[in-house]
């Protein structure tokens, strides 16, 4: 388990999610693919925070305060942020799915083309 392998995993999950968004027309599938992309990003953030130190810690002359140690966990904190954003996003997106389904009784994005010029 090295940084390289984790980054490859992260990139793979991200790209699969992107493929899902681009290739599927069902909006629920699209939402699920977005969640996959989020997960890929979190994997990258956590593995960076685990395997790469921040510049503060690299500096030998600097006093190691708990402030500096907390910066080592920025990736984790960003993971928490991403997870909460994803939760909000999915709730909102599913509300939109309900509305769209009521409007056209379909969840296919192909049917929602009213905005095209």
């Amino acid at each position: 388990m090295t940084l390289d392998s984790l980054l490859i995993l992260s990139a793979a999950v991200f790209c699969i999610g992107l493929y899902g968004i681009l290739s599927k027309t069902n909006i629920v599938s699209t939402i699920m693919s977005i969640e996959l992309m989020f997960n890929g990003i979190i994997i990258a953030a956590v593995s960076f925070s685990r395997f790469t130190p921040s510049a503060l810690l690299m500096n030998n002359s600097f006093d190691v305060s708990s402030f500096a140690l907390n910066t080592a966990l920025s990736g984790h904190v960003f993971g928490v942020f991403i997870i909460s954003i994803a939760a909000a996003e999915s709730a909102l997106a599913l509300a939109l799915v309900f509305v769209m389904f009521n409007k056209k009784s379909s969840v296919d994005i192909v049917d929602f083309n009213e905005l095209k010029g």
Binding site: L9, A12, V13, I16, G17, Y19, G20, S23, K24, S29, M32, S33, L36
Partner: peptide, 8 residues
């Protein structure tokens, strides 16, 4: 990776 492929 297998699961992600299945999802999409």
């Amino acid at each position: 990776i297998l699961g992600s492929f299945y999802v999409v």
